[in-house]
Simulated assay, not measured.
Amino acid sequence: MSQISRGLENVFIKTTALTYIDGDNGILRYGGFDIDDLVEHTSFEEVIHLMLYGDLPTKVQLQRLKTSLNEAYEIPQQVIDTIYSLPRESDAIGMMETAFSALSSIYGEMWNKNTNKETAIKLIAKASTVTANVLRAKEGKKPVIPESSDSFARSFLSASFARTPTNDEVKAMDAALILYADHEVPASTTAALVTSSTLSDMYSCVVAALAALKGPLHGGAAEEAFKQFLEIGEPERTEEWFKKKILEEKSRLMGFGHRVYKTYDPRAKIFKRYAQKLSERSNEARKYFEIALKVEELGIEKFAEKHIYPNTDFFSGVVFYSLGFPVYMFTSLFALSRTLGWTAHVIEYVEDQHRLIRPRALYIGPLKREVIPIELRG
């Protein structure tokens, strides 16, 4: 049994130049740049260039990438029809899986070093269209294709809500896209890598990643964390809830703890700042932010000695709620951002390190048994 690593913990399956994590000291970097600096001084489009091409873009390179995104929002009518054919109560990530399966049938070209990065850019743009229309289909609104603009975040928010977002909203959405863009090889990225190792197409890799992201222990954690705040209802009920649910019933505190970080998740700190700023515009959002602050305080008091702190999903739900998204869309917003990390990792793997991923299982059953004819088995 010493050969088994449960959950593949601390097993390295690839090398990467994309993302660096120091879990003990709470450091996250993309391509050598600290996450705080990227959120503060760059845009999601610049991070797309960084992850796909290895460095931040020049002005000319950035404009070229923005043009590529703006030209790729369109998706076939068959895919739109597929999204809208699903019941409105369908799971949002399940709807995205269905849409990307359809896209893989149409755009599932073979891997090509000369075009892989361009394929990724087109995929990311189409992910914006899919995500916006999943929301609109579930809300009973007409389909829409994002319009060209100076900002991926702006185009996405405009398409989602059919209104002009404020600059603060665009900046918050842009920050969220950067913060969720990549995180080395968690479950969804691993699923994408396994799929890419068979040389399946990039859209199918995203389908595999979405299936893994759907679980509440991965992408669904933001929704589950925010549902706790909804359950608490009012800030003054927080201590009572925490005592009953967490201390007495031993329920898991969602949005706390991380497989890699043994200190405060650096992404959570940034989401907390945006949650505080955005929630000031709405009494309801502010209430949930205040509840989150109280839960955070109680959680740290209880779990800090075990090195369990807030992770990126703890405050992100407050940001998404403040932007106007329903809770059922939080995981889809995670997915929209992570299409960058998924595609960057599979390109890195297929182009530089490709080998079919085929692990083994350690057999622990009977060594050998004789087959007794069915008429003699009693």
Rank of each mutant, 00 (worst) to 15 (best):
M1C: 13
S2A: 12
S2V: 14
R6T: 15
I13A: 08
R29G: 00
R29C: 06
G32L: 08
F33C: 02
D37F: 13
T42Q: 12
L50C: 09
L52R: 03
Y53L: 04
P57D: 03
K66G: 07
K66H: 05
L69S: 10
E74S: 06
I83A: 03
T98L: 13
L103I: 05
S104E: 12
S105D: 10
A120D: 01
A127M: 10
T131W: 00
P146R: 00
S149R: 01
S151Q: 08
S151A: 10
V170Q: 04
M173W: 14
I178C: 06
A181C: 04
L193H: 15
S197H: 07
S197Q: 04
A209T: 10
A209R: 12
A212K: 12
H218F: 09
Q228N: 14
I232Y: 05
G233R: 06
G233P: 02
K243F: 00
K244G: 14
K244H: 10
K244V: 10
I246P: 08
G257L: 01
K262A: 01
D265W: 00
K272T: 05
Y274D: 04
L278M: 04
R281T: 15
S282V: 01
K294F: 09
E297D: 14
E297K: 15
G299D: 00
I300S: 02
E305H: 14
N311M: 04
L323G: 00
V327W: 00
Y328G: 08
Y328R: 12
M329Y: 03
F334Y: 06
L336W: 01
R338L: 11
R360F: 05
A361T: 12
A361S: 12
